[in-house]
Simulated assay, not measured.
Amino acid sequence: MALSNFQRKLNDESTYDFSGLKALFINCTLKKSPEISHTDGLMQMSKTIMEANGIKTELIRAADQDIAFGVYPDMTEHGYDTDAWPSIQKKVMDADILVIGTPIWLGEKSSIASMVIERLYGYSSELNDDGQYAYYGKIGGCLITGNEDGIKHCSMNLLYSLQHLGYTIPPQADAGWIGEAGPGPSYLDKNSGGPENDFTNRNTTFMTWNLMHLAKMMERSKGIPAYGNQRSKWEAGTDTDHPNPEYRT
């Protein structure tokens, strides 16, 4: 992905060290490879900025994976013959930053984006070493493309979902591009104006840097402080004013 002169200048003049961080991009296009994905086109901008700043990145196109439907960590334990999600979940847990990209269909995120959120949700009850929910300390954002309205609606849904699962969301954690209302060119189509759109480029750049900054801050602080938010402590019945009835002696 070719960056603008100003985007490259930001990279070249940065005094911040993001090396050691990892980012996972999940593209929820409905198209399998090698079909062109307009969502991929926008995600590549954020991915390129991160890589220029020393972050190790990976982009997964969910449609290429044999992901089972469900809300459990491994759906082969619930009637499915195969399920690619457990291996993806390992990459999710290994990453400091997660960016979900989706096209807009009927004003909503794609069905694959819904499935990805459901599978992320299936792991949300797991705990980290501090007894917090497993996604605590991880940073989330989203990128949206389409040729109909819905960027803010899709972003609202995705970012709410991620924070509900335990992700931390920085300011300006979403960006997107849409053409004129109704049928028309998509992001990478000739003369769409998408890759040149200043508003989209600015917001994608701001989102990317905010994700990187917050991930570095989280690394330095070693995550969210483990006090007052530990499920393991709550379930141990530490609230003596309102003891958990399951743990009464």
Rank of each mutant, 00 (worst) to 15 (best):
residue 202 R to D: 13
residue 97 I to W: 07
residue 84 A to G: 10
residue 51 E to Q: 15
residue 119 R to M: 00
residue 249 T to L: 02
residue 206 F to W: 08
residue 57 T to D: 14
residue 181 A to G: 05
residue 78 H to M: 02
residue 20 G to I: 11
residue 2 A to Q: 15
residue 195 P to E: 09
residue 37 S to V: 05
residue 199 F to M: 09
residue 59 L to P: 06
residue 117 I to V: 07
residue 240 T to N: 08
residue 246 E to L: 08
residue 210 N to V: 07
residue 184 G to A: 03
residue 155 S to L: 05
residue 115 M to F: 00
residue 139 I to W: 08
residue 53 N to E: 14
residue 39 T to V: 07
residue 170 P to R: 07
residue 118 E to C: 02
residue 27 N to I: 10
residue 183 P to V: 02
residue 135 Y to Q: 04
residue 16 Y to N: 15
residue 73 P to M: 02
residue 127 L to G: 04
residue 100 I to G: 12
residue 190 K to A: 11
residue 234 W to Y: 13
residue 195 P to W: 07
residue 191 N to F: 00
residue 66 D to N: 13
residue 117 I to G: 00
residue 166 G to P: 04
residue 129 D to Q: 11
residue 238 T to D: 14
residue 113 A to N: 05
residue 169 I to C: 12
residue 2 A to L: 11
residue 235 E to G: 03
residue 152 K to P: 03
residue 227 Y to W: 12
residue 169 I to E: 13
residue 47 K to F: 05
residue 110 S to K: 03
residue 226 A to W: 09
residue 219 E to W: 08
residue 223 G to K: 09
residue 89 Q to V: 01
residue 180 E to R: 04
residue 204 T to V: 13
residue 217 M to P: 01
residue 103 P to A: 07
residue 108 E to C: 05
residue 233 K to C: 03
residue 224 I to P: 06
residue 67 I to L: 07
residue 223 G to Q: 12
residue 75 M to W: 01
residue 185 P to F: 01
residue 19 S to C: 06
residue 40 D to F: 02
residue 180 E to N: 06
residue 109 K to A: 06
residue 194 G to Q: 05
residue 62 A to N: 05
residue 210 N to Y: 09
residue 34 P to C: 06
residue 16 Y to C: 11
residue 3 L to W: 12
residue 106 L to A: 13
residue 205 T to A: 08
residue 52 A to S: 15
residue 138 K to T: 11
residue 71 V to Q: 12
residue 145 T to G: 10
residue 246 E to V: 00
residue 229 N to V: 13
residue 177 W to H: 09
residue 16 Y to M: 15
residue 16 Y to D: 15
residue 131 G to E: 08
residue 74 D to Y: 00
residue 56 K to L: 10
residue 172 Q to P: 01
residue 128 N to I: 00
residue 175 A to C: 08
residue 156 M to W: 05
residue 33 S to F: 02
residue 244 N to R: 03
residue 175 A to V: 04
residue 210 N to I: 07
residue 152 K to S: 14
residue 148 E to N: 14
residue 148 E to T: 15
residue 200 T to H: 04
residue 192 S to D: 10
residue 82 T to C: 02
residue 90 K to F: 01
residue 204 T to S: 15
